[in-house]
Write a protein that binds this DNA or RNA. Structure first.
Lengths: 197, 197, 197, 197
DNA sequence: TGCTAATCGAGACGGTACGTCTAGTCTTTTT
DNA sequence: AAAAAGACTAGACGTACCGTCTCGATTAGCA
């Protein structure tokens, strides 16, 4: 039966083999890039990575968990610091849209959101991840508040929510090529609304 | 066994049987209501509707097409007209969240958005639908502009986009139970930003 | 996805396709012949038959059921009628041993007995099959009784059991090449014991 | 979780721990007793014995080897000496059936026979073992011959073969609850056949 | 009125993927 | 130095759906 096991990559014993983990995440990314969310399956990843399915299930209990790890391996979007909150936010959205458009990240994140609609654990993982990101965007608001660009009683989390929502919807409705002018207008509506009276 | 849906359907002749079409759409809605997007499959719908799978495929070429029809059967959310744009928008969002929470609509729309991430036709249908809704929400802005609550050069579509994005994200991240105060705060940030100088 | 389905053999609709059934049983036989019981798996049969696994499971609920059908497709062993019970039984055993030795039948039956040790349904199926065969061997005893070779109060089923047991054990312990003299001796011990006083 | 078998075993050092070997064989026996051949796997035994799979593979190269060792640990069935060959053989079979029915022995031996159908080493071990048993049962025939109950030219090995075959088949087809009368009848057919003319 | 064509429920089909289980090999850790 | 422990590749298990196809029954409208 399985005489000729472990043909290519070797196990390194009782410790988790980082090569395998890498191979799996890389295979997952490749599958997503080439076949999209529709073609993304644990089987396909296992085939591609020359890994056993149980190895994947051992470390990533669900498709969502694997998707999240793949997403997090992507380079982060940089949040500019121009000294002006409108420019900061516009720059951030522009970078984010470009990143989502030009790397597999967009597809991955879309997949993750889709998965979260039918998978509890994906929803939980996504919520966890979003929490981290929200505070991150909230930072730009805090900097603006320190500069007096934003009123003292403004809730940064809610602003971040508005901005993130705007980004999500553009991703989910294939509008990542939005003109900068339109993005700037949207941002301005919010920025004006949260400015000092 | 023995679903309530159209047990004793009769006519199966040369003309399309509208009872069958109804039974299918109703079964689809029931499945979405009871099992959510995760349990939504053509097989499940066919079983529930006591219909053959080919009958479904004949009239709806994809899961997405069926989802779209189910969604369009849903009652629309009413847009209040309080004479004040903030109250209008808050009321609209509250109604929408309640509608999504308390009827199958939320599940259906979530499913449609998810499906659109891997299905072209769903994406197209969603885009088409969103266009209509945006103009519809834009109406509230136009009324506000007429009352002088909103500056003349404001782009209603972009405002509608911000509001709709906020709603989508709450749906997609299971936050339909958001407090009115939080919703009002978010709306106020936008409303203030678009008011007359 | 499954666009290019049904490449070779076609479905013939709502009725069971006999071509598929044949292909599956033939593939099962081929797998057994080439890989033996150890290599016999539903997956392997499905691959070989170009059939879907569910198609196999639809018609044969277990490995055992498929094995039995394969076994029954083999040509039957002829039961000689020489007018002498000893010669009848020796001839039958010789034929049976040869059949088991020279066709896949032996391997299949061995597999079936082995499977029955861990699978309830296999045990049941085997019992059912054996019942039919036992009465069949009992026939030789009845003929002998009619000729006065066997005492009137002899239980044919028990004699058949002794003979079948002898055959089984030779199969299961790889002694199908037993000399005719030895077989004849064993048969004679029984035949003498059941003769008229 | 938490099997009774060797929970607090300690020494896991450079010397082979005899406790481990014991624990493994005992676990194997327990698994066979509780789950039968169907549930008997190296994994299950390792889990039960709280041992690593390689530890088992190091000492028993195959499932069959482990089965053989487990079987050899079993108490032997006693062969009665009543002074009458029919009673001897009936008593032996009754004891054997009871032993197989009421201890794990039956399950173990069934498993071994089943395993031997696809594993060479098991087949060899079984053949070796059977040889020993045959001569053992043959003893009863020799005693009978000495008493003049059996003709001088009778081949004891063949008689033993017939009796063993009858036992095997009852084990393998779950008929260990056979009535004594039936067993006696079968034995009598053979005993009569081998008696002096 | 009788034929033809469309439609229906039903379900078989070849497939893909699921998530779990076991086989047997390999290496690290522990004693 | 060797046993224990656990990770690894590989692949079978039996189930759920996919989307396609054919069957046999049923009915409407044309001839």
């Amino acid at each position: 039966m399985g005489e000729a096991a472990t043909r290519g990559r070797k196990s390194i014993g009782a410790k988790r083999n980082p090569e395998s983990a890498d191979a799996i995440v890389e295979a997952a990314e490749a599958v997503l890039r080439e076949a999209g969310y529709a073609g993304f399956s644990i089987e396909a990843v296992a085939r591609r990575a020359r890994a056993g399915k149980p190895t994947i299930y051992r470390w990533w209990p669900s498709k969502a968990a694997l998707l999240i790890e793949v997403y997090q391996r992507q380079k982060r979007v940089e949040t500019p610091d121009t000294g002006n909150v409108e420019d900061d936010l516009v720059g951030f959205l522009k970078n984010l849209f470009a990143h989502w458009r030009d790397t597999p990240s967009g597809n991955i994140f879309r997949s993750l959101v889709a998965e979260a609609q039918s998978d509890e654990t994906a929803a939980a993982a996504l919520a966890e991840y979003s929490k981290g990101r929200r505070s991150h965007t909230g930072l730009m608001i805090e900097r603006a508040r320190a500069r007096g660009e934003v009123a003292a009683d403004i809730d940064g989390a809610i602003v971040a929510d508005l901005i993130a929502s705007y980004a999500w919807r553009h991703l989910l409705t294939n509008r990542l090529d939005e003109h900068e002018a339109t993005i700037r207008t949207a941002v301005r509506y919010v920025v004006r609304g949260i400015g000092p009276a």
